[in-house]
Design a protein around this nucleic acid. Structure first.
Lengths: 197, 197
DNA sequence: GATATTTTCAGATGATTGTACTAGACAGTT
DNA sequence: AACTGTCTAGTACAATCATCTGAAAATATC
């Protein structure tokens, strides 16, 4: 029971920090910001995390866990790999508003950390790895066993490009039109049309 | 003559700052870093720029100017739009090492500024605009007048995706393989093969 | 119900931040 | 040689930063 309480406090810190890191960037988010957003007093946060980096690590782990759950859910909910891949693409729509305002959470975090703190970036890269592995499975099931990873990487890459330009231009309409194109591309692929590989 | 001297100091500040902003990120680069890197004393920098934001503005203008010169050079050097588009794609090779280490200069800057400082980001978005306009001209000349801008945006988007994943995985080999694909895509397009639009 | 452990939280730490002031060096003009 | 505006450069500043302390409070364990 007591463990539950403290776990909840810890969770509150991680969630608040994670949100701030996404919306403001890691370096642009201060310890005080986390204090204000979480409502957890300064000294108490320090009880759970010795440094700001540790908070980030926990935030990344939190994201990893959520992504895992999401992907497993998709694997359970949808029968065919094509449906699952379409579900992935639909992520662009689900998060359209946030993408427009703050960019891709994975991309922007990795971009920021890759510059100054490569150790932390390496951890953040696991976020991409999760999607890559899952997408690789789907493409393999779709019949592209030999080139499954190649296709997975390409799909993520295209998604990153779309996210970036959407964010740069604050243009959710363009995002939606590119997402439609992506869906058509996927349908073509599912029909065995490899002309565009 | 005296003007020349001071211009050179100013330039030294801008170039050092620009380099640091790219390699470390804007928020993660301190005033003191700029002082150390440029060799220009603190108070003297303040004579040229009242705030850190002003330095960033100047750094963006510096980049804009360099890009303009580069694109005009390409327009002069290469006769056909196809050659020019290939030259653009070759940028991925020219800057492969930096892309791997620090990501795309335009992309990462916009990603960082878009979170906290939208006014500055809007200025940084002009970096993209330059390429977009130039590429639009090339696609129009290539015979895709109606969809020139659409294609320009797509090409940049793909480039951003490639840059991002290359940076995330620190994998310049993957960059090169994707660049080869991009070249093939462009050649197809030039031959009038629209199957992959 | 006494003791041990975990959790809370106000406040201090010194370092670093961006910004600002000031005194004077240098040049060009008279 | 004196004046003028441009430029140099040392240093100070208040604010904010991440980090830490220590003692009180809550809770768990016996």
């Amino acid at each position: 029971m007591a463990i539950k309480k403290s776990e909840r406090t810890r969770q509150r810190i991680v969630e608040s920090a994670n949100r701030l890191f996404y919306r403001q960037g890691f370096h642009n988010t201060s310890f005080t910001d986390v204090v204000a957003a979480s409502g957890v007093p300064r000294g108490n946060i320090y009880y759970y995390f010795k440094t700001k980096d540790e908070i980030l690590l926990a935030a990344i782990d939190y994201r990893l866990e959520r992504i895992k759950v999401m992907l497993e859910g998709w694997s359970d909910t949808y029968r065919t790999p094509l449906e699952r891949l379409h579900r992935f693409i639909a992520l662009l729509d689900d998060t359209a508003e946030a993408l427009t305002q703050f960019g891709c959470p994975m991309g922007s975090l990795n971009a920021e950390l890759g510059k100054a703190n490569r150790a932390l970036q390496h951890h953040a890269a696991q976020l991409f790895a999760l999607f890559e592995d899952w997408l690789t499975d789907q493409f393999a099931e779709l019949g592209y066993a030999g080139r499954a990873r190649e296709l997975a990487l390409r799909l993520i890459s295209i998604g990153q490009g779309i996210s970036m330009l959407t964010h740069v231009h604050h243009d959710a309409d363009w995002l939606r039109s590119e997402r439609r194109r992506l869906r058509r591309w996927l349908d073509q692929l599912a029909e065995g049309d490899e002309s565009c590989l």
